[in-house]
Design a protein around this nucleic acid. Structure first.
Lengths: 229, 229
DNA sequence: AAGTTAACATGATTTTAATCACTTTTCTTA
DNA sequence: TAAGAAAAGTGATTAAAATCATGTTAACTT
């Protein structure tokens, strides 16, 4: 699946470092990391890891987007998170010691660095700032997921789409949101047909614009309103 | 709200210690903890803390049950977790540095010890085993919540009730499940009326038995089946 | 123990969103 | 660049669960 292995991305100069947990490593640690990690290109729809398998390390996303999802009853995906450059993916399972509960798959071409379990734990042990960032990250995400559970249980699909689009705006920044309708539906937690119909409504209401599959948000304020609080 | 302050529960001899994160503290640390924590009785429906406020420490549950919940759109509660003796409540917000995203309220008479922020962080810093347990706990919970999100998004209310009852069985052990219909509905994520109707169905199918508000599970295997996987 | 309140329960109705069946558009790649 | 495949979109129908209205039982309170 993997196109090419390369060693030419430097951690010290990684353009995603500043929004990454590795930003608090000192230059010695960064150099060491650079020696001990492997980097790979992945094309679209490649897996980083699969639900049920055991983690052997973590993945640091340099370029591209990765969807993290579980599979429910009839194999339907529920997208839990969409990772953007700088993010470390898959450390949860490694820290808990369990097999992955989620799968990770690229949704565009990606450059990803692999940091082995040993290396990762070494960094956790030796650098308390890094460790605290990991702990903070876990805690923050845990809080966010409590909100997601509530949203899933209580909000209508329309409200959830508004919430979801706002989250995706944070992830995609100024670029248009570039997800398949099916992925978008699996992120919002609805049927693809329902999602398409709602997108059309939002479009008619002037809230969004679509360029074939791409979605551009025109009125964030309106989405906030629709999202309810 | 608090009936009585007491100092007579010893951490070293706490009957809930063995299923608690404090079990890996050494005797010196336990003695120190004992000097620096305050214990209180709470009656039913008392708050430990409220969504939006800032954490000043964590709560260690010695006796009783506590519901942890968020409030959705129209103030409807979504119960995220029901804590049982031994559990430390409210450390997530303390670790992330944010205000509480959830509220915690007793659902029966409780004995609760309070450990200050300073004290808690001191233990985290000095005892790596304790710290690792905290990290593992956070990670495990994070995984569980990914599953909850998927369940909320994809399972029917009937399936979710089956899942919920099985979870409650783990929490209540051999005792009957003792929750109001409303709390049970807010745990499963449905309307109270719907919950009541489904409980009746389960009762007619011989899966559960009810004693006024209490629920006794008769056929766990059947619930596993209904829960879907 | 009687009265009051809150929790539990049921029936009828409406709403939301899933499902099924099918068409059209867009992307791939031979 | 034409053919095939995959993704996007539409319409009709069904199913699930929320909501509204109201009745009943249980549990406090004085």
């Amino acid at each position: 699946m993997l196109i090419k292995t390369y060693k030419n991305i430097s951690c010290s100069n990684c353009q995603s470092k500043s929004h990454s947990l590795i930003e608090n490593l000192n230059s010695e640690e960064l150099n060491n990391l650079e020696q001990n990690r492997g980097c790979s290109f992945y094309k679209k729809s490649d897996y980083l890891f699969l639900e049920g398998s055991y983690p052997r390390g973590v993945y640091c996303l340099n370029h591209g987007k990765v969807k993290v999802f579980t599979r429910g009853n009839e194999g339907k995906e529920q997208i839990i998170h969409i990772a953007k450059p700088g993010e470390i993916i898959g450390f949860r399972a490694m820290l808990s010691g369990d097999p992955y509960l989620v799968s990770a798959e690229t949704i565009e071409e990606c450059a990803v660095c692999f940091i082995s379990k040993d290396e990762f734990f070494k960094m956790m042990d030796s650098n308390s700032e890094f460790r605290n960032d990991i702990i903070k990250g876990l805690s923050k995400e845990l809080g966010e997921r409590a909100v997601s559970i509530t949203d899933m249980a209580q909000k209508s699909v329309r409200e959830r789409l508004a919430v979801g689009l706002l989250q995706l705006k944070e992830i995609y920044g100024t670029e248009p949101i570039n997800l398949s309708r099916e992925d978008l539906a699996n992120f919002v937690g609805t049927a693809t047909e329902t999602l398409i119909r709602l997108l059309k409504e939002f479009k008619n209401e002037g809230i969004i614009e679509t360029q074939t599959r791409k979605v551009i948000i025109l009125k964030s304020d309106k989405l906030h309103q629709l999202a309810g609080k």
